[in-house]
């Protein structure tokens, strides 16, 4: 329903969007991800007909946005960033205006507004100036305006930005409820949101698409995908590290030998720094092994790309007769993928 082909936008010598192409069908919720300034909003503004593309085409329900902008705008619901609305108006008056501009017949307006207000749960504030409403309510007003005409295509620029966790949850529930029959694009930089509501994620950086897939498939590109974290007691850190490194398929072992409760929790993402501190613990290992016998050690084994190491780690543990408190398979983190591909786009991991 949304088709974008080679979209380019330049502002003077700056290229904000550099050849973006993708298509979204009904039932899909596309999460548009990327660091600030990556070109997410600019892309959306071109699809909605607000900005004119420098090159390339965008079409909604078969209508080209440059050649037939009104047809596109009629079929599209758009929530701009920050959900702008006229602050002096009440939600009731604002939605009446939107309905009038959208050509809703006069006799249908009242019922339509009531039903949309009900869906986004605006009841109770319909007669208050929008200016006086909380951020959550303002967002709902914007959302109500975007879905008032029941569009086939819905585009939302950071719909949950700045909301509290409860409000975020409500907005996400709404989006999920609407997603069945619509093609939805939403931009965000909250990665949990993508996992929660999106069926597909596109990551953009410097105006280009750098990844496109389901949230789950993107997660597999994370270095910690299928990594195994082992926590055990009564084993010295150096010994454990050495044994884990020797397991076949393990590319790297990360983690700290002691004080697991605090430092171990973020060992997976801390990388090199943690590795060296682990080594330090290893050199003083004798001391720890005896005096701090009760301390747990925790290591995360990063597998070589594509290999699965859980069974191998288990076999090793059994062979050494070590009793692990916990052996955990890591699901991979979208955060890691996001950071890796948006900061070093050229580098390809083995």
């Amino acid at each position: 329903m949304i088709r974008i082909d080679g979209l380019v936008k330049r502002f003077g010598s700056f290229t904000a969007v550099d050849g973006v192409s993708f298509a979204v069908e009904a039932g899909e919720v596309l999460g548009f991800l990327g660091p600030n300034g990556a070109g997410k909003s600019t892309t959306m503004k071109m699809v909605t007909g607000y900005l004119t593309p420098t090159a390339g085409t965008a079409s909604v329900c078969g209508h080209d946005v440059t050649r037939n902008p009104l047809a596109v705008k009629e079929r599209l619901g758009y929530l701009p960033e920050g959900a702008p609305a006229y602050p002096d108006m009440t939600p009731e008056g604002f939605l009446r205006f939107i309905a009038a501009v959208r050509g809703v017949p006069r006799r249908d307006r009242k019922g339509l507004i009531a039903s949309v207000a009900d869906r986004v749960r605006l009841g109770g504030v319909m007669m208050q100036p929008i200016d006086t409403l909380s951020k959550g309510y303002k967002r709902r007003v914007g959302l109500a305006a975007a879905i008032l005409h029941n569009p086939d295509v819905l585009i939302m620029d950071e719909p949950t930005d700045g909301l509290d966790p409860n409000q975020k949850h409500e907005v996400r529930t709404l989006i999920t409820a609407m997603s069945r029959a619509k093609a939805i694009i939403l931009s965000t930089h909250i990665l949990e949101e993508v996992e929660a509501v999106c069926t597909r994620a596109i990551i953009v950086a410097r105006g280009r698409i750098v990844a496109d897939g389901t949230p789950a498939s993107l997660r597999t590109r994370s270095r910690t995908y299928n990594a195994v974290t082992v926590r055990m007691r009564n084993v010295s850190a150096s010994e454990a590290r050495a044994a884990l490194s020797n397991v076949s398929g393990v590319a790297e072992v990360e983690g700290a030998g002691a004080g697991v409760g605090t430092s171990g929790a973020n060992a997976g993402s801390a990388g090199a720094a943690v590795g060296t501190s682990g080594a330090n613990v290893g050199t003083g290992g004798a001391g720890i092994g005896t005096s701090a016998a009760g301390d747990a050690v925790e290591f995360t084994c990063i597998p070589r790309r594509g290999s699965s190491i859980l069974a191998e780690v288990h076999t090793m543990l059994r062979a050494k007769d070590w009793n692990a408190d916990e052996v955990r398979l890591e699901p991979g983190r979208l955060d890691d993928v996001f950071r890796e591909i948006t900061t070093t786009p050229k580098e390809v991991r083995p």
Binding site: T48, L70, A145
Partner: peptide, 8 residues
Amino acid sequence: ELLMTLPV
């Protein structure tokens, strides 16, 4: 932006 993306 709102006004310019309405079908007007």
